[in-house]
């Protein structure tokens, strides 16, 4: 059964899109990630224009992050003040990102830029994650105690001015690195269509030394607002959010996520991380191949003067 996507302007098989949404939802539930970094490349592989894939990916992340954020808010593992400071940076970053996005599109380099950014980011994160999880697995097999390494309690980050007290997180921290982190994630959200949790969570733990229990909830809080904002700005400036595509992906995604969570609870943390790392690397590799392999046609046509 085919369905016409009005913004992407092409007909697709609804079952493939449903399957994609469910599979990514399953994985995002299993690994506790938003799934934007998987859904956007998958859509691009399925010939959805990257402009639409990125904007629609951001919209999909809104849906996949809501239930998690609600849960964390109820449990009290969400620092609203910290989240708001992150969010200020995030909104600024998303605005800057949209500007860069439109500019790249006008000079015809957007698709390339998205692909390179994905290869670099997924390649780096995947390699680091695989490295870490393999070491953890080795340690576990040798029955050594698994310790989370937190070297040196104070780094240069903690010597910056404009310090603020975050009661829920029980830390005293400069607003500058928080806003800067939010800004970077905001740029990634608007340019890549990702929530950015897979970068924000490690950065909050290792760079800002924010207690682990509030990290996931607080990052989800920031992600919801930044992805929602990005969706609206993408819709207003690039007309590139496909509501039909997004709805199919979201519905399949949230259902898939519920089953993913159940499977995830049965697997061990380091096994999960190793699997996720392999998946991330596979996506990066697939995108890298498209950059290097000679295209079927060297020419392309686009309507309009840009």
């Amino acid at each position: 059964m085919t369905v016409y996507l009005p913004i992407a302007e092409l007909s697709v098989n609804i079952f493939i899109i449903l399957g994609m949404g469910a599979a990514v939802g399953f994985l995002s539930g299993m690994f506790g990630v938003g799934g934007g970094f998987l859904i956007t490349p998958l859509l691009i592989f399925y010939n959805i224009p990257p402009v639409v894939a990125v904007a629609t990916g951001a919209n999909q992340v809104v849906a996949s992050s809501v239930s998690g954020a609600i849960t964390h808010f109820r449990r009290g593992t969400l620092d609203v003040k910290l989240g708001t400071i992150l969010l200020i940076g995030g909104l600024l970053g998303a605005t800057a990102g949209i500007w860069v996005f439109s500019w790249l599109r006008s000079i015809g380099q957007l698709d390339l830029f998205i692909a390179i950014l994905y290869v670099l980011l997924l390649g780096t994160v995947g390699t680091l994650m695989l490295n870490e999880s393999v070491r953890a697995l080795r340690r576990a097999s040798r029955n050594e105690p698994v310790t989370l390494k937190r070297p040196g309690h104070h780094t240069w980050v903690h010597r910056l001015p404009f310090k603020m007290r975050f009661k829920k997180s029980k830390i005293y921290l400069s607003a500058i690195p928080v806003v800067a982190l939010g800004f970077c994630i905001g740029v990634l959200t608007s340019v890549m269509g990702v929530g950015g949790g897979f970068i924000m969570v490690p950065a909050m733990i290792y760079l800002l030394r924010i207690p682990t229990n509030v990290v996931v909830g607080t990052s989800l809080f920031q992600i919801i607002f930044v992805t929602a904002y990005t969706t609206m700005v993408q819709a207003a400036t690039n007309y590139s959010v496909d509501i039909v595509l997004a709805t199919i992906l979201m519905v399949a995604g949230v259902i898939g996520a519920q089953y993913g969570v159940r499977v995830g609870q049965k697997l061990r943390g380091e096994q999960l991380r190793a699997l996720l790392a392999l998946l991330v690397l596979a996506v990066a590799l697939r995108l890298a191949v498209t950059l290097v392999v000679t295209p079927a046609d060297l020419y392309s046509v686009s309507i309009g003067s840009f």
């Binding site: 809104v62 239930s67 849960t71 929602a228 700005v233 509501i243 709805t247 979201m250 949230v254």
Partner: peptide
Amino acid sequence: ILYGIVCVMIALMTGWGAS
């Protein structure tokens, strides 16, 4: 703008509804 708001509302309702 309205279209964008509707997109976000659908996402919020889907996520919240599923939970």
